[in-house]
Simulated scan of single mutants.
Amino acid sequence: MGGIENMLLASIKSYKTKNIDIYIISNLGGGLDHEFVKKGITLIDLKGTNPFKQFFRLFYILKIEKFDIVHSQYSHNSGFLALASYLRKVPFFISVHNQKAVFKLSWENKFFLSTLRSLYLNIHKKLSLDFSSLIVGHSEVNLDYYSRKWRGNQKFFAVKNGIDFSNLNEQANSNNENNVAFKNFIYNASKVFIHIGSFKDQKNHSFLIDLFEKLEPKKNNYKLVLLGSGNLLGAIQDKVKNRGLEDFVFFAGMQKEIGFYLEKSDIFLFPSLYEGFGNVLIEAQYMKIPVCASQITPHYEAVYKGYHKYFFDPKDLNDAFIKTNKLIEDYDKCSLGTMIDKACYFSANFSVENMVNEIVLKYKARKREFNEG
């Protein structure tokens, strides 16, 4: 259950109030397919990840179906789709959700494979720049991938990610009996730390466990809850077991009601190596959870400036320990009150309604320009 899918799911109601009908063209079989169908969304199978097959598939779909706009969520891998849409004379938007391309990241530092990766991504970049109508960055730094001089260029548009705050409030007030194990886990804990994210290299879970261990959870009666799933889940569970931390780390798995977990936590830890934006940072601040995160560029956009002094190098355990300890000290001294309220107010700017309003205005403007051109 990725952040992109969740954001799209949360935005459907707002799009419908703007009389925007949404069809989702994707590889079917995802964990949220049924949620989209429940909201009345028509799903169309893209039938594969091969870019050439995707090109012909989208070209065919646009030949038999009438769409006013195609809006890709494939970020850096949207080039061939942009070309197909251009040839079918349909405006094409690209949403960029990460500051770096995640395609074959394991090839990045391998001589020959890194060359192939760069060639592949550069083809996508060239096609995207030439044939898309608008490239939307869900963080300003994401647009730097395409051009360092994107500001003032009508080809690019930065928009704040959207959060469904009403849904978050409902989750916080839920009394789901399935959460009994979690309630028992945090009972009498002196402090509850929380992290939300898929178990993959980007999220830096191994570093997070090292940091948590250094905070001496056994001595201080700290608890850590981890929401999410992914390829590295088993490895992190093994690490927790090997460090003797099973009684202090709770693996909640994939959860839809993250508001429930945030409402019962004290500090949000987020040591990502890179991000697109980090919606969960906004959600944590809205729920009045202090944030201690890595000092990467997108986090300076997503986190209230008062928390920036707690940012740390995501590869420097000692720095992370010092910054986290400082936040704990300030939290215990009750000196974060005003900052917590200001961060909550700051987060309210990132509503799903605001995001949809801005994007729909761009839809209408680009569609009008496309028709006139």
Rank of each mutant, 00 (worst) to 15 (best):
S174P: 08
M254I: 15
I194H: 04
C334V: 08
L129E: 13
K241E: 14
S139M: 02
F311D: 03
K53I: 14
K191V: 06
F67D: 13
V102D: 12
F80L: 15
S106Q: 14
Q171T: 02
L134H: 00
L224F: 10
K39W: 01
P91Q: 07
Y307V: 06
R243P: 09
V70P: 15
V352Y: 05
N349G: 05
V159P: 11
A189I: 07
N354S: 13
I236G: 04
D332H: 09
D33N: 10
D238M: 01
G137R: 08
D341P: 01
F193T: 11
K200T: 10
E372G: 00
Y146I: 10
F277R: 10
S190M: 01
L227C: 03
G234Q: 12
L233D: 08
Q255W: 07
E329K: 09
S147Y: 07
K13Y: 12
K126L: 13
T42K: 14
K309V: 12
L211W: 07
L233P: 04
F36E: 08
G29D: 12
R366H: 11
E65V: 01
G31K: 08
S347T: 11
L327C: 06
V37L: 09
H138R: 09
S351L: 05
E372R: 15
F182W: 06
I123N: 03
Q54C: 06
V180Y: 09
K13M: 06
K53G: 02
L28M: 15
N204T: 11
L273R: 12
K191F: 13
H97E: 13
S139L: 01
Y146Q: 09
L227V: 11
F248I: 00
D33L: 02
Q154T: 12
R151G: 04
E35P: 00
D210R: 09
T49R: 11
G234H: 14
S174F: 00
G276W: 04
L273V: 15
I64D: 14
F207I: 12
L113Q: 15
E140G: 09
R368D: 06
F277V: 05
N153C: 07
N231F: 05
V303W: 03
C334K: 12
N220C: 04
A158Q: 05
Q237A: 04
S198P: 06
I267H: 08
Q285E: 15
F80T: 15
F56P: 04
V291T: 12
Q295L: 00
S294E: 07
K39S: 07
A252D: 03
V249C: 07
